[in-house]
Amino acid sequence: MCHIIGIEPQFKNIIKNGPFIPMTAGQRKPEGQWTADEKKVANLDQRLKSLIMFVLPDDQINSVINCLTAKSTWDDLILYNKGPSDVKESKVIDLKLCYNTFKFKESKTLIQTFTRYKALMNELVNDGIKLLKLEINTGFINRLPKKWLNFCQSLRNTNHVKDSELASLFGKLKYEENLIDSIYETEKKKSLVSATPLSTAFFSTSIVQDFQDSPDDEEDTRSS
């Protein structure tokens, strides 16, 4: 829809209301009396229909090949892809259920969880389900593991959950996760260094000592 409206803004009206038909005194004007501008606008319907048909795969073309207008073509494509209204209503119910029961999976990372949740949000929007920013953000952070409880509470206290976009909120969570991982790795390296075996430390010291003593030994050898 965004693409075709970008080509010609009047396409939106054609899809919604059908082709433009020149009228006079409440009656359809004979084509021979159409002005140049009226012909141009009326022809937009066939131009739009051709544009839609051009990008369809063969199986979908066959389902709309007999449609006479761009509007009927568009309506049939919606029916072809989304099904009748009762099917769409069932899908909306399923999406709402997915939103209400969304959970963090222990086997998934934070970014994988965000990707799943974002995809669900996109599906909700595509099916006309509008959620407030606060609902979207709260729905995400409330499903995170308990280890995020304190950090998420701080986000609430500073109004980030209320005011931030979902992507921005995720960015704060990801930064915190990277910071924690960095601290953990640093502490891990320190513990490994402090746990170096005595024999290794002695061996390393011996090498340094031998290296320091080697010039004198070499000089003694030359003197002899």
Rank of each mutant, 00 (worst) to 15 (best):
K162I: 05
Y117Q: 00
S50K: 11
L155S: 04
E106D: 11
P57D: 04
W34E: 08
V125Q: 08
S90C: 09
T158V: 12
A70I: 12
S223F: 14
I21H: 05
L149W: 01
D94K: 13
A195F: 00
P197I: 11
I65K: 14
V125R: 15
G32S: 11
L68E: 15
T35C: 06
T113M: 04
N157R: 13
V208K: 12
N100K: 13
E165I: 05
D163T: 14
S204M: 13
N13R: 08
K82W: 02
L44P: 07
T186F: 05
A119D: 06
S164V: 03
K88I: 15
V41F: 03
E177Y: 02
K174L: 05
I61H: 07
G18D: 04
G32R: 06
N137L: 03
N150D: 07
P30C: 01
R156V: 14
E185Q: 07
D213M: 09
Y99F: 15
E219R: 12
S164Y: 15
N81C: 09
D94L: 15
R222K: 13
K190N: 04
F203R: 14
I61K: 15
F211T: 15
V64L: 13
K105M: 10
L192D: 07
L77C: 09
I61F: 14
M1L: 05
I5L: 08
N43F: 08
T101N: 03
Q60V: 06
L95F: 03
A201E: 11
V125P: 00
S206W: 12
S206P: 01
T138Q: 10
T158C: 10
Q153I: 13
A195I: 00
D213A: 09
K130M: 12
E185R: 02
Y117S: 03
E177Q: 10
S199L: 13
K29H: 04
S214F: 12
I183S: 06
S85A: 14
D127M: 14
S154N: 13
S223Y: 13
D220L: 10
E187I: 01
K40G: 02
N126K: 14
L48R: 05
L79H: 11
E123T: 10
S50Y: 08
E218N: 09
I207K: 15
P19A: 05
T69Q: 03
D217W: 07
R47I: 13
V125F: 06
C152M: 04
C67I: 07
L144D: 02
L120M: 01
Q153C: 12
I4M: 14
N126H: 08
W34K: 12
S154W: 00
H160S: 09
G139E: 02
D75Y: 08
D75M: 07
D59N: 14
K16D: 14
C98I: 06
N157P: 03
D163P: 04
N157I: 07
Q112V: 01
G6T: 08
E219P: 00
K39F: 12
M23R: 13
W74Q: 05
S182A: 11
L144W: 03
V55H: 11
E8R: 06
M121F: 12
F211G: 05
D127A: 04
L192T: 03
L173N: 02
I5P: 00
S224W: 13
W74P: 05
K162F: 11
P197E: 10
L56E: 04
N142P: 01
T24R: 15
M121T: 13
D181K: 14
Q209M: 10
L134P: 00
T113E: 09
D216Y: 15
K49Q: 15
I61P: 05
